[in-house]
């Protein structure tokens, strides 16, 4: 699933996410921040998985599954749109 983070969503380096249209805020962990930054570069899902696998030397299947869950959360909270 390829996602686009909504343009007005603010994400700080410390992992604070603010949706100015609803006033909702969230905290995400450092890997979440990294994934969002990669999404903002409009990388494909596969490219994001590859980048995380390479950086953390982990199994692609695990990253794929976690990325899928994370993307669903972003969509559920209306922070990102499917493209």
């Amino acid at each position: 699933m390829q996602l686009r983070i909504k343009g007005n969503i603010a994400v700080s380096e410390s992992g604070f996410v603010f949706d100015p249209s609803t006033g909702d805020s969230y905290s995400i962990n450092p890997i979440g921040v990294e994934i969002i930054q990669l999404m903002k570069q409009t990388l494909s899902e596969k490219a994001i998985v590859d980048a995380i696998v390479e950086r953390y030397q982990t199994e692609p299947q695990t990253v794929e599954k976690d990325l899928y869950d994370f993307c669903n959360l972003l969509v559920k909270h209306q922070l990102a749109d499917r493209i």
Binding site: N8, P20, S21, T22, G23, D24
Partner: peptide, 21 residues
Amino acid sequence: PMRKQYITDKGKAWAGITIDE
């Protein structure tokens, strides 16, 4: 516009945030 962030038992905003809607 404002979104209530913290509401008292009387339903009054005890904290709120300006939003872009």
